[in-house]
Nucleic acid binder design. Structure first.
Lengths: 116, 116
DNA sequence: ACCTATTTGTCCGTATGTATG
DNA sequence: CCATACATACGGACAAATAGG
């Protein structure tokens, strides 16, 4: 993971980081199924705070590029670019529900009720 | 702005906050054009850190509920909708899942797993 | 079944930057 | 110029999920 950040570019570090990692995935330099370095690891290597890396990782997760979970780390998804309509819809619902402040159980309940 | 948080509920504070504020807007208790208290103000009033409030404010901005800008604060937008994005997403997921031949339990399982 | 290490998640505190009015 | 208020980044602490022995 060779990352180059420019602190004086005016662009937020977490945005630069997100773009760089996304680029490495898009160009296939990381590849599906592979695991990104842990947030603390990458943070130290790049010279930024853990929070900054985590913010980028979470953005990539929201974008459907990686699978990010506690204790597991960040794993590149199988099809970062071609997401199935179902997964797209799932991600959309998760985003909308979270934005509305709903809990997981509430969202699942809504889905269950809407199933006719 | 009467906000009640339950630190021992297991639910993240910023989610509870987002839900509460969203509720106040949805029920018209705040109203379009009105300005929410500043992040620091609300943080002190509720008893949480500024970051927690800002995180909620930014989530509400992403949801298109408020206009949040530096130096200006958070202003409630000309009331678009509060709950409909979620229902829209739910309907979309149901349609996509059925088209893919998924069962209700399978769709709910997918949603549960995607919730991170 | 249990314990431990790893890793992300949340929250707090602080400091500095930057747009707004 | 100046006060206000969000934006970003750093640092630390503890909780929670995961994986492996």
């Amino acid at each position: 993971m060779l990352i180059r950040l420019e602190p004086s570019s005016g662009r937020p570090l977490h945005e630069q980081l997100t773009a760089q990692i996304h680029g490495q995935i898009a160009t296939g330099r990381v590849g599906p199924g592979e695991r990104l370095p842990s947030a603390r690891e990458l943070a130290e290597a790049v010279g930024v705070n853990v929070h900054t890396v985590l913010r980028s990782y979470q953005a990539l997760r929201d974008a459907g590029v990686i699978d990010l979970r506690r204790g597991r780390g960040a794993v590149v998804l199988a099809h970062p670019n071609a997401v199935s309509p179902v997964h797209q819809a799932v991600d959309g619902l998760v985003a909308a529900a979270k934005a509305a402040g709903l809990a997981r159980a509430e969202a699942m309940d809504l889905l269950g009720r809407a199933w006719r």
